[in-house]
Nucleic acid binder design. Structure first.
Length: 124
DNA sequence: TCTATGACTCCGG
DNA sequence: CCCGGAGCCATAG
């Protein structure tokens, strides 16, 4: 099983205007304790092109402080472009995690699992 | 092999 | 609510 392919599917499933935490992505990939690997995958561009990486925030709703996005405020600008309200706390841009967290319903879960099944049965 | 690192998280005080 | 520390685990070297 290719965990990065799973991560790619999960990340691409995050809806416009919603966010997911690293831990949530890991959980949906079937590796609930691998939140750090999600950050690693994004940092190293292991998930293919045009991944909505800006929709991944930490469990507190803070945007990455490491700014692997080109400009220091790119992630914030992309989220604002999706109608997400950001506010500044110290050095971080934050959002209300309870308001924007993505909560996939049963149908979405099924869809994600179907896609995972598909790519794992049809390697490349 | 072994150690250090980190786009993370949980838990206790 | 806020910190600090511990746990976590794939990777890099």
């Amino acid at each position: 099983m290719d965990i990065y392919k799973r991560m790619e599917i999960v990340c691409r499933s995050i809806p416009f205007g919603r966010v997911a935490s690293y831990g949530q992505v890991a959980y949906l990939c079937g590796v609930p304790r691998n939140a750090r690997q999600v950050g690693y995958a994004l940092r190293e561009n292991k998930l293919g092109k045009d991944i909505p990486a800006h929709r991944i925030v930490n469990s507190k709703g803070q945007l990455s402080g490491a700014w692997h996005f080109g400009s220091s405020d790119l992630q914030k600008e992309l989220l604002e472009g999706e109608g997400v309200k950001l506010y500044r706390i110290d050095n971080y841009w934050c959002l209300d995690i309870k308001e924007y967290i993505w909560c996939p319903d049963e149908a979405e879960m099924q869809n994600i699992n179907n896609k995972i099944q598909y790519i794992e049965n049809e390697p490349d």
